[in-house]
Amino acid sequence: MGNYHFNFAIVWRYADKLFNGLLLSIELATLTIAIGMLIGLILALIELDGPRWARPLIRAYVEFVRNVPLLLLVYLIFYGIPSAVDLEYDATTSFVVTLSIYSGAYLVEILRAGLAAVPLGLVEAGKAIGLTPFGVLCYVRFPMALRIALPSLSNTYVSLFKDTSIASAIAVPELAYGMRWIEIQTFRTMEVYLLATPIYLLTSYAILMLLRLVERRYAITR
């Protein structure tokens, strides 16, 4: 252990790889969470209030995605689908689609539980003051469901941020990819990890702390 001579200077030269990588990781996480939330809200609503035949379809989607490794889904969409269908897309798009589908499956479960936990009296009160069904949804059910689901949502968001690292497997230049790239270019292994690991750690915690603040303000604990 004592023989290792640290040399951060070489790694600093490529610091932009880490910085831009981090930015891309955060972008990927934000975008996929936004799309995933949309998928989650819509499907959760359909599962609760929609036609009966839609329920098994949604269950099949959720169960399939949740019980298959993310890496396999990433390969399936990046290599598998273009080989069978005449479609072309780059690695980043492909990963955004994959992680959105993946996050959607997790978020449906959380949001459905949230929607189901909205007290019936509130929904009736909404109807009683003359809100349309859409109004009840926008002003009563969604806001309440989000506030109830908030603690579970925060945990899922952080783990989705960490999951963006899997994009490096298809060469999307995010943080884990930048980390490996510098390592391979410079062989300053320890230095790269000593920089990249805290970046992940601090970002995960920053996200978590931010969400805890939101929770403290808005979460409804039953």
């Binding site: 884990a176 980390m179 690991t197």
Partner: peptide, 20 residues
């Protein structure tokens, strides 16, 4: 738990050999 599993894997496999 704050670090992606992938980074842990790389760290143990590619990183630790640097310290023998």
């Amino acid at each position: 738990r704050g670090v992606p599993i992938l980074v842990l894997l790389y760290f143990v496999y590619y990183g630790l050999p640097a310290v023998q």
